[in-house]
Structure formats: structure tokens, C-alpha cells
């Protein structure tokens, strides 16, 4: 019984049911629903990011590359060739994986800060290219898709609730995958590489290969979020695809919530994306770039309080509360449990 209660599958199922029910009692208006959809999408992207950054210890500041490529590929295929979104998905995935491979081959061996820089430069380069190749991409003005008549089977919904559930399905799937990878041999190798690459190599683990594979999987998943984002907004431009704000919105929730933990990116996205969307200059009249500053301040403040992230803070807070109420019988944490 306690085994079942502790199992990540149970937690993820419970989470999915709870979030699925929210629109019926806790989401009062379409403005809040819009924030919730974006938060769910970025929670999914942050979970994909967490696979390589959290488990594999390979930080990147350019996951927007895969998000943006997914969104642009779908936008162009739908607009120029009239493709159905489902036909665009495998193309988007392939492009993202090829881009990840191109990034990984020179840098997986080096890892660390080098990869952070390479990925950041690459996403800014893509932003420039998307702006410059205006014949294909529409340049800085971006691509606006004609919405046409709703077709739920093609993920075009009249009611935004449809997009809410698509985002929730993506997030739930990613969480399940993350939990499964964490417990697999592959996940164990990734964590070993993150903890000590030299010791991992001496134990027979091909360090660069683990990093590369985790990046490919992470890139593929992140591109799916790009596709879902495009289906929801029906618009993409170079900055929202590849810009530094998008890069932060994918990386920061994981850093804020707790790298390598199952729930950190979800908690991080809930907090940060809500704040970011509230400060969104399009609605609030506040200067652009404020979101980035607020992200930075929040993440830094949290790092000084609890370097392991908000999930750990919340957890020790809850344990503390439990002890004060005299209900908690648990004193020790389960060993080696990174699925917090």
C-alpha cells in the first residue's frame, strides 16, 4: 500500500486527474486558462530539458532550438504545403533530432559550460536566420496561420480547453517517461555521468554517448511542445521561437523547481510562467525584458535559500509542518530517491 502511494506512477496519475479537473472548478476565466495552457506547455518543455540537464548533468541554454524548430517546421508545412499537423510531427521530430546531433557531436565530449555556450549561440543564430530568410519564414513578422474551421482531430479547437488537454497529455506523458528513464539502466548511467564523468568512464560507461542520447530524446520531446504551442497560438516568429526569453522559459523552471527531480520543473513552471505571463508586456504595458529579470532574480533568490530547488524547500516545509502537527512518523528520507 505504501509502495503504491510512493510510486511515481500513482503520483503522476493523481496529478493528471487533478489538473484535468481544474477547469471545472478553479479556473474562473479564459485569461487564467490561457496562462494555465502556457504553464503546462512549458512544464512539459522543462521536463524534457530535465532529462538531459537534470539526469545527465548537461545544462543547455538553447532548448529553444528544438522548440522553435518544431513550431516553424509545423507552421511552414501547414502553410506552404497544406499538410495536416500529424504529418508535420515526424518531420518536426526529425529536424530537431538532427539539430541535436549536430550540436552534440562536437560538444558532448566536452560537456559542462561549453555546451551551455554552444547551445545559446546556436539558438541566437537560428533567431537571426529565421529573421533573415524572410522569403521562407516571413522574417521578423513571423508566420500567422489562417485558423480555418476547427478540426479537433487535427488539434485545432474552437474552445481553448482543447489545447489545455493536449498540453496536459504531453506533460503527463513526459513525466511518465522521465520517471521510467530515471529508474532504467540508462537513467542510472546518466546519473553516474552527471555525478562524476571520469569515474563513470572508468566504470565502463561511454560518457559522450549517454549525453548525446539523452540530448536527442530531450530534443525530440521539446520539439513536440513547439508543435503543440503552434497549434494553440497559430503564430510563430523568430523571437518567440528561438529568443532568449523562450530559452529561459524552458531552462529556468527546472533550475527553480529542482534539477533532476520529477516535480521540480512542474512546480517551477507553475510559479515562473504565471509570473512571466502576468508581466507579459503585451497585456500589462510593462517593459519587455522585465520577465527575464524577474526570472533571474527569482532563480537566484531560491538558489541562495535552497540550492536543490523549490521542490526540496516545499518538501522540507511540509515535513516540518507534519512534525509540528505531530502526524508525521517518517523521519528518514527514502534512500537514493531522486524522484522527489
Amino acid at each position: 500500500m505504501t509502495g503504491l502511494l510512493k510510486s511515481p506512477t500513482t503520483h503522476i496519475t493523481g496529478f493528471a486527474i487533478a489538473i484535468a479537473s481544474l477547469p471545472f472548478w478553479l479556473i474562473p476565466n479564459s485569461g487564467i486558462l490561457a496562462i494555465a495552457i502556457v504553464a503546462l506547455l512549458y512544464a512539459a518543455a522543462a521536463t524534457a530539458f530535465n532529462l538531459t540537464a537534470g539526469l545527465g548533468g548537461q545544462l543547455s541554454f538553447g532548448h529553444s532550438i528544438f522548440f522553435g524548430l518544431g513550431a516553424y517546421a509545423t507552421a511552414l508545412l501547414r502553410q506552404d504545403l497544406g499538410w495536416n499537423v500529424w504529418a508535420a510531427v515526424p518531420v518536426a521530430l526529425t529536424i530537431a533530432v538532427v539539430a541535436a546531433l549536430a550540436l552534440a557531436l562536437p560538444s558532448a565530449r566536452l560537456g559542462g559550460v561549453y555546451f551551455v555556450l554552444v547551445s545559446f549561440v546556436a539558438t541566437l543564430a537560428l533567431e537571426s536566420i529565421a529573421t533573415w530568410a524572410s522569403d521562407v519564414t516571413g522574417g521578423a513578422a513571423g508566420i500567422s496561420l489562417t485558423v480555418g474551421s476547427p478540426a479537433p482531430a487535427e488539434l485545432r479547437f474552437e474552445n481553448p480547453l482543447g489545447h489545455y488537454y493536449v498540453a496536459l497529455i504531453l506533460l503527463t506523458t513526459f513525466l511518465g517517461l522521465f520517471a521510467a528513464v530515471t529508474r532504467s539502466n540508462f537513467g542510472l548511467r546518466l546519473r553516474a555521468v552527471r555525478d562524476d564523468p571520469a569515474a563513470a568512464a572508468a566504470s565502463g560507461i561511454a560518457v559522450a554517448r549517454q549525453r548525446t542520447v539523452s540530448l536527442l530524446v530531450s530534443a525530440a520531446l521539446t520539439s513536440l511542445v513547439g508543435v503543440a504551442y503552434l497549434q494553440y497560438i497559430s503564430y510563430i516568429d523568430p523571437t518567440s521561437a528561438f529568443g532568449s526569453m523562450t530559452a529561459s522559459m524552458i531552462a529556468m523552471p527546472a533550475l527553480f523547481g529542482g534539477l533532476g527531480t520529477l516535480w521540480g520543473p512542474v512546480l517551477g513552471a507553475t510559479v515562473l510562467i504565471s509570473v512571466q505571463q502576468t508581466l507579459n508586456p503585451a497585456f500589462s504595458g510593462l517593459p519587455a525584458g522585465l520577465g527575464l529579470i524577474v526570472f533571474g532574480v527569482l532563480v537566484m533568490a531560491l538558489q541562495t535559500i535552497e540550492p536543490k530547488g523549490a521542490v526540496h524547500l516545499l518538501r522540507s516545509g511540509l515535513r516540518h509542518l507534519g512534525q509540528r502537527l505531530g502526524t508525521s512518523k517518517r523521519t528518514a528520507q527514502p534512500a537514493g530517491d531522486s524522484l522527489t
Binding site: L188, R191, D195, A201, A202, G204, A335, G336
Partner: peptide, 30 residues
């Protein structure tokens, strides 16, 4: 390093260098 390990050379480190987020069993299992 991993190729040399596969050929049958193992080492320990002066400063131990275990995988610190793993359990004892996981360190050996991996």
C-alpha cells in the same frame, strides 16, 4: 576510459569518487 575498462582494466580513485546521488547498490549496479 570506457574502452580501456571494457578491455578489463579497473581502477579506484584516491579520493574515492563514488556516484554521490546513487545508493551503494546503484553505484555497483551501474
Amino acid at each position: 576510459g570506457h574502452r580501456i575498462a571494457k578491455l578489463g582494466i579497473s581502477r579506484t580513485f584516491q579520493h574515492v569518487r563514488l556516484f554521490t546521488s546513487l545508493t551503494a547498490l546503484e553505484n555497483v549496479t551501474v
